[in-house]
Design a protein around this nucleic acid. Structure first.
Lengths: 142, 142
DNA sequence: GTAGTTGCAAACGCTTTGCGGCATA
DNA sequence: TATGCCGCAAAGCGTTTGCAACTAC
């Protein structure tokens, strides 16, 4: 994991971007938590918990920046907020708790969703991807 | 279709709710368009096009009301807005255009998604449903 | 008349933008 | 020092709420 953070940092530096204290901390947050997509507000809270006061504007800009760099990816969990998770380059889906909005990643082996579309009337859409979210109650709320 | 509107209207009346001009028009909009989930803003525009000036608050309240009555259902298309469609009591999914945000319904025969979950680590969640959205370009934008 | 419905204004939460100042390289 | 980064204030968008007026039954 340490190597991965260093690789991400090197990539940013090579591309002319700076490694500020805030940016490093945000990278640490994402690399130390690879299974739960977080929102801007949650990231801000985590930074505060690490004794780093960050403006919300900076959080939003940093999320957009890291997303544009391909280090994190946007996740729509269906709770009305933008969420982001580390870009793991692997196809997976998410479960959302209907009570507390907790989000986790799940992997379906041999996911053939888009193949199943061959027999479906797609209204002439050209499909480029899909998002599958499961809803229910998490371990704490059930 | 006419019978279905009348049935919905009768249900509302039986439950002590009123059939105002606005409510009737909103029912007509939903019953005349059963394949495209619409947002509050879009519904408001459609009512304006029908020469009916409606306050946005009323639109939001009416959507929540009809949803609570089970006549329409909330649809999360992943575009950050709440969308609603006529409750067709049939399981289906949606395709979203990444360029113009058009939304359409699609049906996958023999959808066995939740059955496939048996072999998946669900982080101890109790699953009650799922939302599957496909992304791509619509006929106009492709 | 009464309870359901509506419009208006205000506020909310999440997100974005403009701009001046700061700090990393 | 120069460009990227940051904080502050303000505004945007979708949505919700409080309250007074209205209207369907």
């Amino acid at each position: 994991m340490i190597q991965q953070i260093l690789a991400a940092q090197a990539t940013l530096k090579d591309n002319g971007f700076r490694l500020t204290k805030i940016r490093k901390l945000i990278l640490e947050v994402f690399f130390s938590n690879t299974t739960v997509p977080i929102s801007a507000t949650e990231l801000k809270s985590q930074l505060f918990a690490l004794d780093t006061k960050v403006n919300k504007t900076t959080v939003y800009r940093e999320l957009e920046f890291l997303s544009a760099q391909g280090i994190i990816v946007e996740v729509n969990a269906g709770d009305g907020k933008k969420r982001y998770e580390l870009n793991c380059y692997c196809h997976h889906h998410h479960v959302l708790c209907l009570r507390c909005s907790a989000v986790e990643c799940v992997t379906i082996d041999n996911c053939t969703l888009e193949e199943q579309l061959n027999s479906v009337d797609l209204k002439n859409f050209k499909i480029t991807g899909h998002a599958l979210n499961f809803f229910g109650l998490c371990a704490q709320c059930r």
